[in-house]
């Protein structure tokens, strides 16, 4: 995945999360829908943030096999 896509996902999901949270407080969105949206989008948000911070994104490798 390109860093640009990850950035887009992070920003988009972050905005949705904050909006749903605010919406639930103001009563614009029902609590259940806000909760559902949060549960679904939260992993995408956190994973994309994590990948944004990571030092390098490359192809796979043969993993460490022990001693």
């Amino acid at each position: 995945m390109k860093r640009l896509h990850i950035q887009l996902i992070a920003i988009l999901s972050g905005i949705i999360l904050i909006l749903s949270s605010i919406g639930a407080y103001l009563g614009a969105i029902s609590y259940a829908i806000s909760a559902l949206a949060t549960i679904i989008i939260f992993p995408a948000f956190i994973i994309s943030i994590g990948l944004l911070l990571s030092a390098g994104l490359k192809d796979g490798d043969i993993p460490f096999m022990g001693y």
């Binding site: 939260f42 994973i47 990948l51 030092a55 994104l57 192809d59 796979g60 043969i62």
Partner: peptide, 25 residues
């Protein structure tokens, strides 16, 4: 979070990432 990250070639890729997302969810 600041480490170099990839998916191991030997892994079942969908599952490898999916479990992380599911754990958070």
């Amino acid at each position: 979070l600041f480490k170099e990250t990839w998916i191991p070639k030997t892994a079942s890729q969908g599952l490898y990432v999916g479990v992380v997302a599911l754990a958070l969810a």
